[in-house]
Design a binder for these strands. Structure first.
Lengths: 220, 220
DNA sequence: ACCTGAACACCGTTCAAGT
DNA sequence: ACCTGAACACCGTTCAAGT
């Protein structure tokens, strides 16, 4: 049968085909692949994921992913994008829970950043570990990233208006805060602080300590 | 010829063989492989390095590396080890250049950490990006890492004795400082701050800003 | 302590052809 | 919008055998 007629046929009655024969597994294979990949991440690692493995986990042939992603790195980018959105959402929730208290917002958001990151270290390595080519990062990806950063800057500005934070450029302060929690999270995730932070509680404790140091400085 | 006799022969007159026939390329293939790998790092990326590629660049067969490394990840670990030593050495030099001034030592060491890291972002991703299994990290590796951290703690303690830094546990302060510079470096290396830090001078500038914020805090 | 060469299972990617 | 199946070049790893 010609491809054209076939396409008309299946796009017209997707559900029917899904019920009658077991050929088309997913309404949204794209999401299913991303989900399967996230499930495989802990076992394979960010740099050990294989397209064929992901396809098999999603129950499709190893060529099927190419219908939704240009190549493997496009799939990886989509996974990282999902991770970034989840991180962003979680922090937004935490921030909303401490309304009108910029100082607490900052500390709690930082703590959430570290805690959530350490729940998915492989996701963090995918998002921040240089697996993805910075030049190839999708526009969507950058938007999510910039939106998160803008939220952080907004907290700083609110704190400055309330007379809590000093009057330096808010972007500078935001980068300082982000660098700190990001560095702590990455160091623990990569196993470089195993002596002092193996358990989640220890990581949480450390994130509060560095949060305090950020606020008050380390000078006497 | 039997392997035993052959081994006796070549171990007894390595240089002769090297001159007479072009078969044994390296006195120290292990180092040559690491060096070749470091050279390939910028082109291949931390997770794109292939053993065969490295062997070819070193001018040996693709099975030769197995004489010196158990497997690919052992080679990667050795590369990371080299990177860690270089980073450690560079910081030791900077610290030595500002003797008896713990505050400046801290700021300059941080700046050097960021600057040097950004000169080899792929090396940083290999060292800190989760490419290596934390459990597999060699003892040597951990020793270098711990030695560096001990040096940082020592600076903090000196500053506390001099009455410059506050009297918190020096390990807490050390982790705070390390997290900050590490986070900044990793964020820039992964391309997440391209708006504010593409040039090395901007990175250097940022590292000084966060250093200042670390010292004085962000509260008013 | 290296070499060649073959072999194995796996990988990303690209086809042609089918439903 | 999926499928199978074959193909390609590449990969990590393991051999056997040679120098």
């Amino acid at each position: 049968m010609s491809t054209l007629i076939w396409n008309l046929l299946i796009t017209g009655s997707n559900e029917l085909i899904n019920r009658e024969q077991n050929t088309y597994h997913h309404k949204d294979l794209r999401s299913a692949l991303i989900e399967a990949a996230i499930g495989l991440l802990p076992a394979s690692g960010a740099s050990g994921l294989s397209l064929r493995e992901v396809a098999k986990a999603a129950g499709v042939s190893h060529t099927a992913p190419y219908r939704h992603f240009k190549d493997k790195s496009a799939l990886l980018a989509a996974i990282a994008q999902t991770g970034f959105e989840r991180l962003s959402d979680a922090i937004t929730t935490v921030v909303a829970a401490h309304d009108n208290d910029p100082q607490q917002q900052l500390v709690e958001a930082g703590s959430a950043y570290v805690t959530l990151g350490l729940q998915n270290p492989d996701m963090m390595h995918l998002m921040f570990g240089g697996v993805l080519d910075p030049d190839t990062l999708s526009e969507e990806f950058c938007n999510t990233s910039m939106k998160s950063f803008a939220g952080l800057v907004h907290i700083i500005e609110a704190g400055q208006k309330a007379g809590i934070f000093k009057a330096d450029p808010p972007e500078s302060i935001a980068i300082t805060a982000w660098s700190m929690v990001h560095g702590l999270m990455m160091l623990i995730a990569a196993g470089h602080l195993r002596d002092m932070a193996t358990l989640p509680e220890q990581a949480e404790q450390l994130s509060r300590i560095i949060g305090h140091n950020l606020l008050t400085g380390i000078l006497k």
